[in-house]
């Protein structure tokens, strides 16, 4: 199916956290557009496994990024941007389903979704979700990411545990998350 050409958004470089800082403090539209381009696909995919209808999916996807925009002044640079996006996406889904009077279902990939442009991919060994993406990190990177994202330790606490400087830990976490994204993207293009 041919899609209408999209207006090209300006692209800015840098890590997610650098972009978020520019977007948050300078109102850099290009920084937001780049963050959106990087993460919209994952958010849409995540939401599609939780929302039964295309209309709900589009509505919540839009709500996620509008909340992301409206709450940018609340973002704490101590946390990775991806974690921030995940939290917003998760709460948006929960809020939407509660407003609709539905319980929060566990909808897996085999549930039929009304997606004309992107029908659910047939599950094969080649395109199974790659949970190994985290295990492909070095021991230090994996620990840093898990402590930071899941245990919500500060960079200072992680630095103390790893016997590194705080700056070094920030770089480790940023690089590790980038590796995960690239690994998952490569898995996607290899299909």
């Amino acid at each position: 199916m041919n899609e209408k050409p999209r207006r090209e958004a300006p692209v800015a470089g840098g890590t997610d956290e650098e972009l978020m800082e520019r977007y948050r403090t300078e109102g850099d539209e290009a920084a937001f557009a780049t963050l959106y381009q990087r993460h919209a696909g994952r958010v849409y995919g995540y939401l599609s496994s939780r929302l039964p209808s295309r209309q709900d999916l589009d509505e919540v996807h839009q709500a996620v990024f509008m909340k992301f925009h409206q709450s940018r002044s609340l973002y704490d640079p101590k946390y990775p941007v991806l974690q921030w996006i995940y939290v917003i996406a998760r709460t948006s889904v929960t809020d939407h389903l509660r407003r609709a009077g539905r319980s929060v279902p566990v909808i897996d990939d085999t549930t039929a979704l009304d997606h004309a442009e992107a029908p659910p991919a047939e599950r094969t060994p080649e395109n199974e979700p790659d949970l190994d993406a985290l295990e492909n990190l070095s021991e230090r990177e994996r620990k840093a990411v898990e402590w930071r994202v899941l245990d919500e330790l500060s960079y200072a606490e992680i630095a103390a545990r790893l016997d590194q400087t705080e700056t070094s830990v920030r770089q480790i976490v940023s690089r590790a998350l980038k590796k995960v994204r690239l690994s998952l993207a490569a898995k996607g293009t290899a299909r």
Binding site: F32, A40, Y44, G45
Partner: peptide, 28 residues
């Protein structure tokens, strides 16, 4: 969070993307 990180990426409809970008652009 692992499920989120490993979610299969899907391209949002162009109309939805354009709406988001234009609303943010207008706001900024």
């Amino acid at each position: 969070f692992r499920e989120f990180m490993s979610a299969e990426e899907r391209t949002p409809p162009p109309g939805v993307t354009e709406t988001i970008l234009s609303r943010v652009r207008a706001d900024l």
